[in-house]
Design a binder for these strands. Sequence first.
DNA 1: TATTGTTATACTCTATAACTATA
DNA 2: TATAGTTATAGAGTATAACAATA
Lengths: 167, 167
Amino acid sequence: MMMQHDEDDAPADPLPDPWVGAVDLGPLVMTLGFALRRAQAAVAQDFAKSFGPEEIRPSQFAVLTVLRHNPGLRQTQVSFALGIKRTNFVPLIDELERRGLAERRRVPGDRRAAALFLTREGAGVLDRLEAIAREHEARFAARVGVEQHAALLGLLSRISDRGFDAE
Amino acid sequence: MMMQHDEDDAPADPLPDPWVGAVDLGPLVMTLGFALRRAQAAVAQDFAKSFGPEEIRPSQFAVLTVLRHNPGLRQTQVSFALGIKRTNFVPLIDELERRGLAERRRVPGDRRAAALFLTREGAGVLDRLEAIAREHEARFAARVGVEQHAALLGLLSRISDRGFDAE
DNA sequence: TATTGTTATACTCTATAACTATA
DNA sequence: TATAGTTATAGAGTATAACAATA
């Protein structure tokens, strides 16, 4: 995830020559799908570099955040809120529980359900993660300007508005 | 990819009750990573619905588009331009070639290299795909407004600016 | 020695079907 | 019958290592 050391290590220099900008992407550049892909790649890369030593992936950070703000939610509610199918959510919460950051508790009224909580350790770790997340976010706000950053968030939410489906 | 028919088919109605908007996402909503994830999900869903019958994935459409605008490019150049590792690009171009939409030609000067071209059939298919893509894009432009759509593209490109890495 | 395309492989994300134990 | 959580599984996307042919 950082520091490669394989045979492809060489390309540390900018790039060959007739490369950068030489390829015409055509109508692709006016396309939301392609623009979103590249932006997400850039953000994901910065995320990986920022959180690298913490061994936390975006989805895990998102779950911990939701648990802090909504202690006691059912598994399905959390997974739905994050756009993760409940079936894929199982191993995710499994690992957070295994690492002692979150826990499942049985619900009195319904013996099928599992209520999710942050552990004390999870809360401590999340404090640290949030500090990293703020710096991570600030880097992009600085890159485009604070107002533009806010505008971007607003536009993105309008794109995804009427767009929940996962599960 | 459309019309589910498994046991989870029931939830056709809006949603239970204390669900929508009931979950507090906390600082997540001010986060580029999360906003990009949701927007990309919405766009990918519309893409799948629009191109469904054509059996074309975003990456395949992107390759065909690049080949139309840059006939004769080397494999590695195309893959780099699209942010796809050359190693993962192989099966992608393999399938396009198998379907008769693109072709590899040997390069006179360099017997290692492969130059990529759209076939005549590929050009015909791409004409049809581009029409679908324009409608697909127009739906989102209509959703946020044409000017906002353009602004969004501009902001996204600034996010990904200094951000090429794939390979 | 370096580069082009390739194979093999692994890990994450996502998606569907079907099971269990409850309700 | 329906729901909550679960298992098994398959498909994309993405990542690294290493190889053959050629430069």
